[in-house]
Amino acid sequence: MITNQKISLSNKLSQVEGIIVSDMGGEKVMLSIAKGKYFNLGEMGGEIWDLMKEAIEVKQIISVLESIYQVDQEECEEQVLTFLSQLFDQELIKIND
């Protein structure tokens, strides 16, 4: 069941500029000096992050991931929406509707 309503499948999302991003052993890590926080998106999160270089609809992200990974649609939607909401809460991504 999808409980998080902050980010929806029709939202267009993109990365927020000015964040220090690096690849460490296949995992995407970020540093926000302003917030004093270090973020690790992991391997899967890094792949989702890369898809948001340009504004992209959430349902497109889901579609790309479903074509690459063995996962059913509902599980993918739920987990990706939760993850994207966390990124949004931390102001790492923005909505471009």
């Binding site: 926080k37 270090y38 690790n40 391997e43 990974y69 063995q70």
Partner: peptide, 15 residues
């Protein structure tokens, strides 16, 4: 052949 799915997670460290 499709890759194995792993749930995406965000790890946050307050520095």
């Amino acid at each position: 052949m499709k890759k194995q799915w792993k749930s995406p997670m965000l790890e946050i460290l307050d520095i």
